[in-house]
Design a protein around this nucleic acid. Structure first.
Lengths: 185, 185
DNA sequence: GGTATTATTTCGCGACACAAAATATTCCTG
DNA sequence: CAGGAATATTTTGTGTCGCGAAATAATACC
C-alpha cells in the first residue's frame, strides 16, 4: 500500500487535487510537531529547549568549549554562558579550565547528564527512525528523494553538523537589535 | 533526476546507502531553514518571530479576539497580551473593545500593519510556492505523498488552522513549572 | 439580586538572546 | 622580555518570551 491516503477521500476524483497545498500543510504539521515535541520533552525532564539542544550537542561532539558550542547551536557566546550556568546548576555538565590554554573552558557531560540524555532518547526521533526502518527500502528512497527536492526548493543551507531534530536556534544575523525570540523550553 | 546523491559518492555502491540518514538530514535542514528564515525576516523588519507569527495570524483570519489568537498560535493569553502590547506600540495593530460584549477585545491590523505584511510577504514561503508550481504535476504529487507519509510516521497532530510556515509555538503542555524561555528578538 | 462564567490584563518569575564591555590569558612583534 | 594585538569567556544591561495565578471587568444564569 504505497499509496498514502490523500487529504480528501478518493485518490484522484476532484478537479485538481492541489498538491501544493498538501505539501505546505504537511510541512507545517511536521514543523509544529517537532517544535511541540521538543518543548514537551524538555519540560518533562525539567529542562528548557535550548538547554536540551545544548546538552545533546555536548553529548554528540564530546567535551568542547563554550565557543564551539555557541557556533554549533548557533547562539551567541553570552547566551551559551547563561545556559551552561543553568545546566551546571542542575549538575548535568561540568566546566573545567584547560591546562595548556587557561582562557579556554572545557564543557563536558556529567554522569547525571549522560543518564538524563539516555532517558530522554526515545521520543520522536527514535520512534521516527524505527518506523522508517520498517518501511521497505524503495519507499525510503522515495521519501529521501522528495525531501531532498524540498530542501533544494528552499535553498536550505548546508549544515555540516546540524543540531539534532529540534527547533534550536538561528545561525546568523548577528546584526543589531536586542534578542528576538527563541522558544523557551 | 529522481536519484538523490547519497551521502557517499556512488549511488548504491556501498553496503547500504542509508536513506534514513538522508531523510533525517533533510528534515533538519528544512527545520533549520524555516527557523532561520523566520528570524531573519522578522529582524529585518524590526519585529520578533512571535510578533510576526501573530501579525500573520491576524491577517489570515481577520479581526479576532486575543483569546482566539492565543489558541491559534498556541500561546497563553498572558503571553499574547504582551505581544499585542508591543505590536500596538509599533502601530501595527489596534485593539477595540466590542460593543455587545465589552469583555471582549477585537484586534485588527492597522494600515501600517497591513503594509508591513505586504512587504514581508515574498520570502521563503512564496518563493517556495512558486518553485513548486514550476515542477511538473507528477513530481508535486510525489512530494506530497512522501511528506504525508512523513507526517504519518511522526504522528503529527492534526492542526485545524496551523500558523503559517513558521516555528511559532507549542500547543499544549500547560503543566507546572516556571516559564521556560522566551527570547526576545 | 447574587453567584458562576468568560475574556483579558496584571503581576511575578525565570529563561532566553544579544551587544558591548570587562576579564583573563596567550600570541606576536620589536 | 616588555607591550600591544588577538582570543576565549564572562559580566552587564536591556528587551522579549512564556507562563501560572490573581485581579478586573462584564455577561449569563438561576
Amino acid at each position: 500500500m504505497p499509496r498514502p491516503r490523500a487529504t480528501t477521500p478518493g485518490s484522484r476524483a476532484l478537479p485538481q487535487s492541489d498538491h501544493g497545498r498538501d505539501i505546505l500543510r504537511s510541512l507545517r504539521r511536521i514543523l509544529r510537531t517537532v517544535d511541540l515535541h521538543g518543548r514537551r520533552l524538555a519540560q518533562h525532564h525539567g529542562l528548557t529547549g535550548p538547554q536540551l539542544v545544548c546538552l545533546r550537542e555536548i553529548h554528540r561532539s564530546g567535551p568542547l568549549n563554550p565557543g564551539q558550542l555557541a557556533r554549533s547551536v548557533a547562539m551567541s557566546p553570552a547566551t551559551i554562558t547563561g545556559i551552561l550556568d543553568r545546566l551546571e546548576g542542575h549538575g548535568l555538565v561540568a566546566r573545567r579550565r584547560r591546562n595548556r590554554d587557561k582562557r579556554q573552558v572545557l564543557v563536558q557531560l556529567t554522569d547525571r547528564g549522560a543518564e538524563l540524555l539516555g532517558q530522554v532518547a526515545p521520543p520522536l526521533q527514535e520512534r521516527f527512525e524505527e518506523r522508517l526502518e520498517a518501511l521497505d527500502p524503495e519507499q525510503r528512497r522515495r521519501i529521501a528523494a522528495a525531501l531532498e527536492q524540498v530542501v533544494a526548493l528552499m535553498d536550505a543551507e548546508d549544515l555540516d553538523a546540524a543540531p539534532l531534530l529540534e527547533s534550536g536556534a538561528a545561525t546568523a544575523a548577528p546584526t543589531r537589535g536586542p534578542g528576538h525570540g527563541g522558544a523557551g523550553h
